[in-house]
Each structure stands twice: as C-alpha cells, then as structure tokens.
Design a protein around this nucleic acid. Sequence first.
DNA 1: CGCATTTGACCCGCGC
DNA 2: GCGCGGGTCAAATGCG
Length: 320
Amino acid sequence: MDYSSSWINTSLNLNINPHMVHQQLPKNVVENNFFSLEMKKSSPKEESSGALVEELKRVSAENKKLTGMLTEMCENYNTLRNNLMDYMRKNPDKESSPSKKRKSDEISSSNNNLMGGEVGGVNGNNSESSSSDEDQSCKKSMELETCIKAKVSRVYYKQESSDSSLIVKDGYQWRKYGQKVTRDNPSPRAYFKCSFAPSCTVKKKVQRSVEDPSVVVATYEGEHNHPHPSQVDSTSSATNNRCRNPISSAVPSSAPSTVTIDWTKSKCSNESSSKKMMINHPKMEVPQILVEQMATSLTKDLNFRAALAAAISGKMLHQN
DNA sequence: CGCATTTGACCCGCGC
DNA sequence: GCGCGGGTCAAATGCG
C-alpha cells in the first residue's frame, strides 16, 4: 500500500448511523455504535433478526463505500504521482556518473522518488544540504519529493514462533534476493524486492524481533509505483494470501498524522467479506444462525475493525 | 524447463 | 588504511 495515498482522503461520507437502530447512542462514539452490533445479537431473536439483517446490509454498504474510497484514494495518488513524474521529466536533474553502481542507484532512486533512505535515516537531509547551489526548479522538485516520499516504514507481524519462515504476505509480490545474519539479531534478515512491477524498486527487509521472536518486523523502503495487486487481480491475490496479523505499524516521523491503512488488514478479512457478499445477494435466504455467525464474524474481525477505525479517524481528521 | 529461493562472495560505507 | 558489518549480486539449487 502506498502509505501516502491515505492522505488524500478527501470526502469520505461515512454514514455510520443512517438508521434508527442505534440512535440512542451518542453520535460521536462511532466505534461503540458499530460494535453494538455484537450486543444486538444477544437480544430476543424475533426482534433482532430483522435489525441484524438491516445492520449487516448497512455494514456491507459501508464497507463497499470504504473500498471505493480506498480505490479512489489510490487513483488520486497515482494521478498525483504521474503529475510529479511529468514535472520532474520536464525539470530533469543533473545526470550523475554511473561509475559506482550503488551510488548511482541511490541517486536514481532519489530522482525517481521511489526509494527511501537507509533504515533509521530520514532521507532528504543529504539532498537538502547539498542542493544549496541548485537552481529553483530542482529545489521545487526536491520539495515535491519530500512531500510525497514514503521513506521507511515498519510493520510488525505476529507470527507463530514455530513458523520459521520470514515470509510476510502483505498482498504484494516479493522476490527474495538475499539473507543475512546481522550482528544485533541472531535471527537472519531476509531481503525482498517488489516483483509485481519491473519498475517498482520498493524493498522490504524482514527479520524477527529480538525481544519477541514471535513478532516479525518488516521494514519497507520506498513506495510502490503501481496499484495494489488486489486491485489488479483481486481474485488471485485473495487466494494467495496467508492471513497474518499486523499488530502495529510505524510510519515515518515526517508524516505524523498519516492514517496508515494496511492492505493486509483487508486481505485478512476475506472470509468475512465473502460472507457479506452472500448477505447482499438478492435471493438471500440465510438461516438465522448463519446471520448471527456472520455478524459475529464481522464484528469480531479485528482487521475489519482496524480498517474501519482507520477510515473513521481519517474522516475525523479531515473534518478537523 | 522456467522461475523462485538459497547462499557464498563481493561491494561499499563507516568508524577507528 | 584497515577491518567490520550491512546490503547486493549471481551462480547453484530446488520446486512445480
């Protein structure tokens, strides 16, 4: 996921409480409002079944709306990105000598606005200090770069300690190109490159946490210059993804108010989304017990909750 | 047979 | 200048 794309959350008209089902609840307590669904299912059946179905329909509609908004955000991001590329093409940076491979890589990645710096380093500092004699256009492009650059982010995945693999299924296609044992961590660090698009230079480092071996730390460098594979081929990616639980994520300090929408969250709720599709089916005749199971599955899905909470907080931030 | 992964070698930056 | 350590390359290997 392009983390920066979540900034472009323009107008998410989430109608969290369109019906009168939960009107007794304060309007600002959206999470409680939403999660009261779980409480609902314990109410008398004759009363709650219809409300539950309505509620599920509403939740499904909201989820669809969220999905649409995410897609729109990604499209906006790609449009912005293309604009930036055009701009930078019209104001090309000075060509550097390709004598040293890694240096040229760094420079090109900086120009391409795809790569972040080294882990822990806030890139852009070097360019700022060295760009004092550059012309105005270069400065402008640099500023634009620093505005949208996705730098480095870390995602922590909870993983079975017995699972020794360093494979984190986040929806993207990665090709492993190296593995190293680092000094500060006995567990090996795996290096991955994004293989979905040839031009995508996003890299990922995966290593188990020293403190908690059941936690896998994935460090992403750069920004994908292509849409999420699930948007290109949602059916195949849905079957390919193992469900891992990202327990927290950190975004660069340069983007403190970013709402990180992790695609793994949506991927992990495949099961519940398929159920929602069933509910939305026009010829729906779902047994009561199944409805309740669906409701439970939906509301107990932490990933779904997290994604929804992220969208809501994004909306709130936008309103503020 | 083609593709992905593994793994040892090499490169390069950085600290001393 | 040298050694260390992280990162990358590319041949070998495995797998479907």
